[in-house]
Simulated scan of single mutants.
Amino acid sequence: MTLPAGPNDLDAALLERALRDAGRLAAGSTIEGFEATRMSEFGGVNGETYRLHLRASGAAPASVVAKFPARSPAARGVAAYQHWYEREVRTYRELLPWGAMRAPACYLAEIDETGAFLLLLEDLGGLRQGDQLAGCPPSEAARVLDDLARWHARWWEGAAEAGDWLPRTTVGLERARPVQGALGRAWPIVREAYALPSALDPIAEVLVERYPELLERASSAPATVVHGDFRLDNMFLRGSGAEVEATVFDWQFACRCRGVYDVAYFLGLDLTIEDRLAHERPLLEGYVAALREYGVAEYSSEEAWDDYRLCLALGFAVFAIGGAAEQHDDRMRRVHEAGLHRLAAAMVDLDVGAVLRGP
């Protein structure tokens, strides 16, 4: 199959075949055409995402979501280097069908030898979009972490079963040295650009110096399959409070790592500083308790706490590299600013430097 580079190359016949194969097109129904509208809530700098409003004869979805490679050659190059498109396609095809995490229904997931890819997904635009800037109420965070624990428990110490195509950590251990160099260049840029606190300086220095070793620690046993970019902007939400249901998308960073990486990323980025200080420890303990309910017996709250502090720093590294790059819109700049300040506060508050330096 020759994959389209964008909506202008996509034809109705491909949509019709995909929806029919997925059981979403009634017998005798056809797709006659579509109008494409570029989306922001499903996309980002690493891909181009469109809502396709379908014109159909007979019963068919009113719309679907189509995700294509980024238009920027530089962004596509980074995605190829990190295998982001392959990871997302294979996660939809091979891992999410196990059903341990709510995700958009996938009607088509294809990638070719050139790195071009196409996802056709259920349109969840009728649900509430998560907003990292607004933050997550602690009651909703607790429910989201319970769902996350179910996913992690499914792959606990069985991440290799998921496939060798999943790297260890979001950046991959084999790419640790180049990414360490990028982090070293990014740190002074974001320190000044976002006016980060001077108390972070010694922690950041250790993070840069020991980055490859820290990745090794974070991906050692017990490892599981993590989402890798587990934050509100990558969730659609149904309901609220303790009854909220999160549907998670954007799986390009999926990898093998300690499950608390997702927890630290989520709480560090999506809770306000005040809510994190008041609730992070009980929320983490709730996650560990949920793991036990789902069958993970040998992972203590003390081990989770050390992993949490380590992974806050690794999440900061991701946001520092992203924040040092050119921001493609004002909201992305504000997301990086808020995220870096929240993570910096957590790293200082919790003496993360002591964990990074090791015993």
Rank of each mutant, 00 (worst) to 15 (best):
M1C: 05
T2I: 07
P4N: 11
G6Q: 07
L10D: 15
D11R: 05
A13D: 13
L14G: 01
L14N: 06
L14A: 06
L15S: 12
E16Y: 14
D21P: 03
D21Q: 14
A22K: 09
L25I: 09
A26K: 06
A27R: 08
T30A: 09
I31M: 10
G33D: 15
M39H: 09
G43M: 12
G44P: 00
G44W: 03
G44T: 06
V45R: 08
V45C: 12
N46C: 01
N46Q: 04
E48D: 15
L52S: 07
H53N: 13
L54F: 10
R55S: 11
A62H: 05
A62E: 15
A66I: 13
K67P: 11
K67D: 12
F68V: 13
P69S: 02
R71W: 12
P73T: 10
A74L: 05
A74Y: 10
A75H: 03
R76Y: 08
R87Y: 15
V89W: 10
V89A: 05
L95G: 11
L95T: 05
W98G: 15
R102W: 01
A103V: 03
C106M: 13
Y107K: 14
L108V: 08
A109L: 05
E110W: 15
E110M: 12
I111Y: 13
I111L: 14
E113A: 15
L119P: 14
E122S: 09
G126R: 05
G126D: 08
R128P: 10
G130F: 13
G130D: 08
G130W: 13
G130T: 01
P138N: 06
S139M: 14
S139W: 03
V144N: 00
V144R: 01
L145I: 01
W155Q: 10
G158I: 11
A162C: 14
W165R: 04
T169E: 15
T170D: 03
V171T: 12
E174I: 10
R175L: 10
A176H: 02
V179L: 04
Q180H: 02
G184F: 00
E192Q: 07
L200D: 10
D201F: 09
P202S: 08
I203H: 10
A204W: 14
V206Y: 11
V208L: 06
R210C: 06
Y211E: 00
E213S: 10
A223M: 03
D229N: 07
R231N: 07
L232F: 11
M235W: 02
F236K: 13
F236E: 11
R238P: 10
V244W: 04
A246F: 14
T247M: 06
F249K: 11
Q252M: 14
A254Y: 00
R258C: 09
V263W: 00
V263N: 00
E274K: 08
E274T: 03
R276D: 02
H279W: 07
L283G: 15
V288L: 02
V296K: 05
A297E: 01
A297G: 04
Y299K: 01
Y299L: 02
S300C: 02
S301F: 04
W305Q: 12
W305A: 09
D307Y: 14
A313G: 10
A317Y: 10
A317G: 12
V318W: 01
G323R: 00
G323M: 01
A324R: 00
A324F: 00
A324Q: 01
A324E: 02
A325Y: 02
H328C: 09
D330N: 13
R331F: 15
M332Y: 02
R334T: 03
H336D: 08
E337F: 01
E337I: 04
L340Y: 08
A344R: 11
A345M: 07
L350V: 04
